[in-house]
Amino acid sequence: MPIIKDGAIVTDTWHHLADDEPVSAAPCTVSLARWKREKSELAAHGGALGLRLSGDDRVEDFAGELDQFPLVVVEFPSMGDGRGFSIARLLRERYDYRGELRARGAFIPDQVFYLRRVGFNAFEFTYDANLQTALPLLNEFSVTYQAAADEPLPLYRRCAR
């Protein structure tokens, strides 16, 4: 399925493994719970491995191991569940995660501006969303008051006001 990544519509090469699904050599993501359980087996599978987080997962508990994942996916079970926004900022700003950070779930195109600001660079809608609509919304506002993952300084320190 196509996703948005780094401001463009691209084909997704990752497969999101269910917790009971056998691992293949293709790039795949696993839930944090599965990764904790099967760390050594998963490390041996040879292909690229990504990590999937839910809002309940505490980033603090595995922050030291983030570097090994080229992709971290944060799940959004609904558009109203905003925990992922805090998780993203922690990953980027506190734990300095530099890989692909992907929002995945039932969020809507109108949220991608906020999601980009907290550090997501990839967007995977789990329903038939219009990616062409979403693309320009990444930069919907030209003014941002706050510091966030995309911008280390608040407006008052960036601009002479």
């Binding site: 949220q111 906020y114 941002t144 008051y145």
Partner: peptide, 14 residues
């Protein structure tokens, strides 16, 4: 007001 306006992290609170 300015800090909270379109706050990227806190617009979908519980």
């Amino acid at each position: 007001r300015q800090w909270s306006t379109l706050h990227p992290e806190f617009s979908y609170l519980p």
